[in-house]
């Protein structure tokens, strides 16, 4: 793929894109909490938020007011600096990761003629960058749990360490097979590879499933949300947090959910290519929305796993499967 056929990427376009991402995604991340409560409620035949605004839509504003005005408590024996910085790590890395994923196709703003690229910064190692950033984000829960001098926090950060570190392996290996097929680490190349309408999930179903599982583990979603498993360890790494610091962890988590959705859509599900009669921008939004919905769906349906089952699943099932998948992909590519 030659990048020169695209219109020139200008600084203005990139800035517009970055602001768009920051504004839209943080709004969606907040809105995601509303969607999550509603969807989970419906699946349990409840109504969910109902009283603030029409259909409870303004619940978001109420939550925001509550988060901002709540007392910010730092426990007595906590390491104050690390305790304060940790939520920022989670939120910041989640948004930095979003800088390198395409959340919307290229478009040109009419009249002023500014070209807005699909990715705020199309680094040629896009996937590595995003995975790296999401891995760096694990410092948030890790440091938060260790800094708060609370036993639940310690257990939460220990689980962070084992869970994220081991599932990082599966994410990497499962993405390796599609990367071999496409021969590039850039999301744009992935998208263009599938522009003929055949989604990569057709060639790589195993990798897709593995990636979803590992993605759920990395975004700390049910059935792998052991880091803050309320039934066992109160709230894990966020036990001592309150107010906006707690909110930042959640914005980070929801932003990560969107990132995983974007990666799954672009790498496996055909990206922002037009499909049938649907335009590309609609397709990518629909796919991201569905993968977000799927996370909520899974949360409503499936129970947690135990930490030892989690490790067992990762090292004895998923990782061998991922390796076999990579080997078979390699053999087929050499043969073909």
């Amino acid at each position: 793929m030659d990048a020169t056929i695209l219109p020139e990427v200008t600084a203005v376009g990139v800035i517009i894109k970055a602001v768009l991402i920051l504004a839209v995604i943080s709004a969606i991340a907040g809105f995601g909490t509303y969607i999550e409560r509603k969807v989970l409620a419906f699946m349990q035949r409840r109504l969910g938020p109902q009283h603030v605004g029409p259909y409870g839509l303004l619940q978001l504003a109420a939550d925001g007011i509550k988060l901002f005005t709540k007392e910010d408590i730092i426990p007595q024996h906590a390491n104050k600096i690390i305790f304060s910085v940790a939520p920022a790590i989670t939120a910041a890395t989640a948004f930095i990761a979003l800088a390198a994923v395409p959340v919307f196709p290229d478009f040109t703003i009419p009249f002023v003629d500014v070209f807005v690229p699909s990715i705020a910064s199309d680094v040629n190692v896009g996937i590595l960058f995003v995975l790296g950033m999401m891995a760096a984000g694990l410092y948030g829960p890790l440091l938060a749990g260790m800094a708060q001098s609370n036993k639940w926090g310690i257990i939460g950060s220990a689980r962070t360490a084992i869970q994220f570190l081991s599932y990082e392996v599966v994410t990497g290996l499962s993405l390796l097979a599609p990367i071999m097929m496409v021969g590039s680490l850039s999301f744009v190349d992935f998208n263009d590879y599938q522009s003929d309408g055949t989604w990569l999930v057709v060639y790589q179903p195993v990798a897709f499933v593995l990636f979803l599982i590992a993605g759920y583990a990395e975004t700390n979603r049910t059935p792998f949300d052991l880091l803050e498993h309320e039934a066992e360890i109160v709230s894990g790494y966020v036990t001592e947090y309150s107010g906006m610091r707690w909110g930042m962890f959640f914005i980070g988590e929801y932003a990560n959910m969107i990132t995983i959705g974007v990666i799954a859509s672009v790498v496996f599900l055909g990206g922002y290519n037009d499909w049938w009669i649907f335009a590309g921008w609609f397709m990518i939004l629909a796919k991201i929305a569905f993968s977000f919905f799927f996370m909520l769906w899974v949360r409503a349906a499936w129970p947690h796993v135990r930490p030892d089952q989690l490790m067992w699943l990762c090292w004895k099932v998923l990782m061998p499967l991922a390796v076999i998948n990579v080997v078979i992909t390699g053999l087929v590519m050499m043969a073909g």
Binding site: F42, M43, R45, R46, L47, Q50, W297, A300, A301, W302
Partner: peptide, 26 residues
């Protein structure tokens, strides 16, 4: 089994939203 779980939750959501089987008493 996992897909049975997914199906059950989806069915309940359908019941709640479109068949008037919402449990909540406001």
């Amino acid at each position: 089994e996992l897909f049975v779980g997914l199906w059950v939750t989806l069915r309940e959501m359908n019941n709640a939203l479109f068949r008037g089987k919402m449990h909540t008493t406001q």
